[in-house]
Design a protein around this nucleic acid. Structure first.
Lengths: 366, 366
DNA sequence: CGGCCCGTTGGTAACGTTATCAATCACCGG
DNA sequence: CCGGTGATTGATAACGTTACCAACGGGCCG
C-alpha cells in the first residue's frame, strides 16, 4: 500500500488520553510539553502515544498559539546564486530557532510580490523577509499593521521605516572603480541591471533607491574624484538579462574609443560581459580590466581569475532572520538599516590601462 | 509606528458579519467564496470586510479543511545550483496550483532529514518532495501512512514503492564515457561524490542505489564495452567537496601513466577537477579531455567550453510537483519511477587521446 | 491537629474557520 | 389560491489543540 489510499483518521489527543486512561488535559500537557505531570502518568501517556502513532497537529497548535513557527521569504528567483545563498542564510538561523522557511519567487514582478506577501499574511507567518521588487510598500505596511514583522533584504527602500539588511554598495563600488582610475583607466563602462528610470530618478533626487543605483552612484563618485568629466560616463542598463549584457558590451567594445575597463553591478551582468569579451577574444586583463560585483564559485575558475567585490550574502540572510527573531520576541527597537561590509577581492582581472587599446572585433563565424 | 507595537486583535468573520448586519454563516460564505449569497449581501459583506481590513486566517481554514496548500521540499542544500533549480521547478508548478513551498536543508545528514520530514508531517503539508540522504525510508513510509504523498527527487531508493523522478543516469554516463573511449582514451578517471561504501555495495549487489552510483555503473559499462579491463578503472571518491576533488585530480595527473580524460559525476566534482587542471596548467582538451555531469552557467565561460551531460533539473522538480498534485487530488496509481532524458552537450573540452601524454607538474609557488 | 501551599489532575472554554441543516422567502405551474 | 422548488439565510456543531480554573490530596508549619 505504497501511496495513501485515503487519508486515514488521525490519532488525536483525546484518543491518546482514552487509551492511557487519563484526562484529555493531562495527556495534552504531557504531549505538548507544558504544565506539570507526574513521572508515572507521563510515561503512560507517552507509551499510549507511541502505540497509537500519535503525531502533533501543528495547525491546531498554531491556531491557538498564534505562532506558525514559519518565516516567509520573498525573493526574485532562488535559481540565482545570490538569492539562493541568502535563503540559505535565513533558513539556517531560522532552523536553529525551530522555524521553517516558506519560499516565494517574484521574478521582480511587483504584482507577484504583493500576492505573495498577502498570502503570507493570510498564512500568519511569524515574520517576513522581502527583497522588494518595486518602491511601493503599502503591502508591507499592511503586513506590519497586522502584526507581522518585516525585514528588507538587499534593498533598503529609503524612508519606509522598515528594518533592512544591505551591504555598503556605494562605498564598495566607489573603492573598486577608484582602483581602476588609479591605474590610469579613464574610459570605464558600467553594466547594470538597474532600470534607466530608476537610475535617472536616483540621479535627480540624489537619493539612492536601489542596491544597483547605489553602486552606480559609487561608480560616478569614483569618476568624479578622479577628475573624469560626467560626459565620459559609460552606463548601459541591460536589465536582468545575460544576453542583453553581452550585446551591450559587444557594442561598446567594437566602437571607436572603446572602454578599457568594465565594472558590473551584479552577477548576471558579469556573466554577459564575460561572454562578450570571450567572443571578442579580448585578452584579460591587458586588453580590458574587469571587476564584478558579487563573488561566484566560477570566479576562480576562469583565466584570469576574476577580481570582485564580494558580499557576505549568507550573513545578510542570517542577520535578517535574527532581526526577525528579535522582533517576534517582542523587540520594539526603532527600525533601522543594517549595513554589512563587502570586501574587495583583488585577483587577476585588472591591470593598468593600455596606452593604446588594441581594437576588438568579433571574429567571423567559422 | 513602523514595526508592530503589539499584535493587534485581528478582524474575524463575526466582526465583519456584525458590521455588515448579516449572519456569521452568510459572511463566511461570501468571504470564503463557497455556498450562495445574493448580489446585494455579497456587496455589503465585501464592503464591510474592506472597511475593517479583514484578512482570511488560513490557519483556521486549514484546520477544518485538512489542506494546508503547502508542499514540503527536502534537499541537501539550496545553495547548490542543482537543488536551487529543482526547488524552482517545484515552486513554479506548485504556485500555479495555489500551493506554497516550505524548504528544508539536510546537508546530506540523514538525521536532519528525518527531523525535517517529521516536522512536515506535523505541519500537515499536502505533499512532500524529498532528496533522500540515506537509503532508510521508514520516516517516508510514516509520512505516507499518515496520508501525505511523497515523491523522491533525483534519487530513486529502489524497491521502496515510492514515486520518484530521476534522469537516465546510467545510460547518459555510459554514452558520455563511450564518446571518450571511441576517441582512443583508455585511461579515464571518474571523480565522484559517491561514498566508497555505497559504490562497493552497488557493485556487489548489481543494483544501483544512488544517482552517483548509477553514473559510476554507466562509466564501468562503457569501459567494459570498449574492452578496457576492470583493473584500468580509475575511481576517486571525494565526497561532496571541491577541495578534495581538486586534490584527487592533482594526485592522479602528476603520477606516472596519468589519465587522459576525466569524467565527473556532479558539479562539485567538476569544479574541483577544473581547479586542479588549471593549477597544473593543463591544456584542455589536448592534454586532458573533461566531461562534466550537469550543466552550469559558467560552462560556456571557460575556455574551452565545457562538454557536459545536461539534466533537465527544473523539469525534474516540476514533474515531482505535478505527481504530488495528482496524488493530492486522489490518484492511487501505482507508484513508479519517472525517468527524464538528459542530453549530451558536445562543446569543446574533449579531444582524441594524445599519443604520448605530456607530463603535468604543479608549478612551484611564485 | 487544623490550615495552607503546591504538585497534579480533569472539565471546559477558547481559537476562527467550514460544514450541516433547518427555516424562510419568492416564484411558478396547476 | 395552494403545493412545490430552489435560492438565500443564520444558528450551531465540528476541527484539535492550548488556556484557564476548580478540585483533590499530601506534606509541612504553627
Amino acid at each position: 500500500m505504497p501511496q495513501p489510499a485515503r487519508p486515514p483518521r488521525r490519532v488525536t489527543i483525546p484518543d491518546v488520553a482514552r487509551h492511557a486512561g487519563v484526562g484529555q488535559a493531562t495527556a495534552a500537557r504531557v504531549l505538548g510539553g507544558y504544565g506539570s505531570a507526574s513521572a508515572a502518568t507521563r510515561e503512560r501517556v507517552l507509551a499510549a502515544a507511541a502505540e497509537l502513532g500519535y503525531s502533533t497537529n501543528a495547525v491546531a497548535r498554531s491556531m491557538i498559539s498564534g505562532r506558525t513557527h514559519t518565516l516567509g521569504v520573498v525573493v526574485a528567483d532562488v535559481e540565482n546564486a545570490y538569492f539562493a545563498r541568502a535563503v540559505r542564510g535565513v533558513s539556517d538561523v531560522a532552523a536553529r530557532a525551530g522555524l521553517q522557511v516558506v519560499l516565494a519567487n517574484t521574478d521582480e514582478d511587483a504584482r507577484k510580490e504583493r500576492a505573495a506577501v498577502q498570502m503570507f499574511v493570510e498564512r500568519r507567518v511569524d515574520g517576513l523577509v522581502v527583497t522588494p521588487a518595486g518602491s511601493d510598500h503599502a503591502h508591507l505596511d499592511k503586513a506590519i499593521a497586522s502584526g507581522i514583522p518585516v525585514v528588507l533584504l538587499d534593498r533598503a527602500l529609503g524612508g519606509a521605516g522598515l528594518d533592512s539588511v544591505v551591504v555598503d554598495n556605494r562605498d564598495a563600488a566607489q573603492a573598486a572603480v577608484a582602483g581602476l582610475t588609479s591605474r590610469g583607466h579613464t574610459r570605464i563602462a558600467v553594466i547594470t541591471s538597474a532600470s534607466p528610470a530608476d537610475d535617472a530618478a536616483a540621479l535627480a533626487s540624489g537619493a539612492d533607491i536601489w542596491t544597483t543605483t547605489e553602486r552606480l552612484t559609487g561608480y560616478r563618485q569614483a569618476l568624479r574624484a578622479a577628475g573624469i568629466p560626467r560626459t565620459a560616463e559609460i552606463v548601459r542598463h541591460t536589465g536582468y538579462d545575460r544576453a542583453r549584457a553581452r550585446a551591450a558590451v559587444l557594442g561598446l567594445m567594437t566602437a571607436d574609443d572603446r572602454p578599457t575597463a568594465v565594472f558590473t553591478t551584479d552577477n548576471v551582468a558579469t556573466l554577459g560581459t564575460l561572454d562578450a569579451l570571450r567572443d571578442l577574444d579580448a585578452h584579460l586583463p591587458d586588453d580590458v580590466s574587469v571587476i564584478g560585483f558579487d563573488d561566484a564559485e566560477w570566479a576562480t575558475l576562469i583565466r584570469p581569475r576574476l577580481t570582485v567585490v564580494s558580499q557576505p550574502v549568507q550573513d545578510l540572510g542570517g542577520l535578517a532572520a535574527e532581526i526577525l527573531l528579535r522582533r517576534i520576541d517582542g523587540s520594539t527597537a526603532r527600525p533601522r538599516r543594517h549595513t554589512l561590509r563587502s570586501t574587495y577581492i583583488d585577483r587577476e582581472s585588472t591591470a593598468p590601462a593600455p596606452a593604446t587599446p588594441r581594437p576588438l572585433r568579433l571574429p567571423p563565424p567559422a
